[in-house]
């Protein structure tokens, strides 16, 4: 569905991604993991067409992003950025902006909700507080509203950059459960940057670990989330096992290769 091949991205003298290849089939949930600064967000931004790679191409459903207009891309790929400024908008106004790509500036002037907005509000459970201003909501409600914005674009591919950061454990699970349900209902292809390895293993079909801009491990969670990955990618000593429900669980014993935490 979305495929990146031979991606190379550098910021000045620093190379952030070296020859990264990722092919995400339709309907898959891919989790990107790795240390801060390893290139996860950069990869997500390149896949979203928000950043032009120095080398390599990204195609969505067979069409290269380089040949598509910004609006065409937005109809195919929706992105939830890590953070958004205070927009002063209500939830409904926020979600309406997701229709810009579909309706265009003239269509947006007409105002009003189309079915995609109503559905996005209903499906994310934000309809109840649709007319509340975003800055009056809790972090969990706000994140649901942002997800509704991405959903309103009606794109088959959803890219989420750290959707659970800043959320308590209840709202982390709430958002991930919501994405799970929406993916099933709408047949979405999902790519998320996640920091919690156990969550990545539990929710995603596939995990890619990046280290220094290179794909270090790629495969189903059971094969990728291992003590070796903790050591090699995160420089952390730890244990990985299945709990009594068969879910992958991680315990972190300390930093590898030095005295700290031992």
């Amino acid at each position: 569905m979305i495929r990146a091949s031979g991606l190379r991205v550098g910021f000045g003298p620093r190379t952030v991604l070296h020859d990264v290849d990722v092919d995400v089939p339709r309907g898959q949930w891919l989790a990107l993991v790795g240390r801060n600064g390893c290139g996860k967000t950069t990869l997500l931004r390149v896949m979203a067409g928000l950043l032009r790679p120095d080398r390599g191409t990204v195609t969505v459903d067979g069409s290269p992003l380089a040949g598509l207009s910004r609006r065409d891309i937005a109809r195919r790929i929706a992105v939830l950025p890590q953070s958004m400024p205070d927009s002063g908008l209500t939830v409904r106004e926020l979600v309406r902006q997701g229709r810009y790509a579909a309706r265009g500036p003239l269509g947006m002037l007409a105002g009003g909700d189309d079915p995609a907005v109503t559905a996005a509000l209903a499906d994310t459970g934000t309809a109840a507080y649709a007319d509340a201003r975003l800055d009056r909501l809790s972090g969990g409600e706000r994140q649901r509203a942002r997800l509704a914005l991405a959903l309103a674009q009606g794109a088959p591919v959803l890219l989420l950059d750290e959707p659970t950061t800043y959320l308590d454990i209840h709202h982390q699970l709430d958002i991930l459960d919501l994405v799970t349900r929406l993916r099933a209902e709408r047949g979405l292809t999902v790519v998320t940057v996640l920091h919690d390895l156990a969550q990545a293993a539990r929710y995603a079909d596939r995990v890619i670990a990046l280290r220094d801009g290179v794909v270090h491990a790629d495969g189903p969670p059971a094969a990728t989330v291992t003590p070796a990955l903790l050591r090699e990618v995160f420089t952390v000593e730890g244990r990985v096992w299945r709990d009594d429900r068969g879910r992958i669980t991680c315990a972190y014993d300390g930093l590898a290769g030095n005295q700290l935490g031992v």
Binding site: A48, L50, R70, R71, I73, A74, R75, I77, A78, V79, P81, S83, M84, P85, S87, G88, L89, E93, L94, Q97, G98, Y100, A101, P105, L106, M108, L109, R146, L149, A150, Q153
Partner: peptide, 24 residues
């Protein structure tokens, strides 16, 4: 100026989210 109003709305989301909504 009137035509710019919808774009101004989208720009409120911040550059990153505005771009992903289809605006440059």
């Amino acid at each position: 100026a009137v035509l710019a109003v919808p774009a101004l709305r989208v720009l409120r989301l911040g550059d990153e989210a505005a771009a992903s909504a289809g605006l440059r």
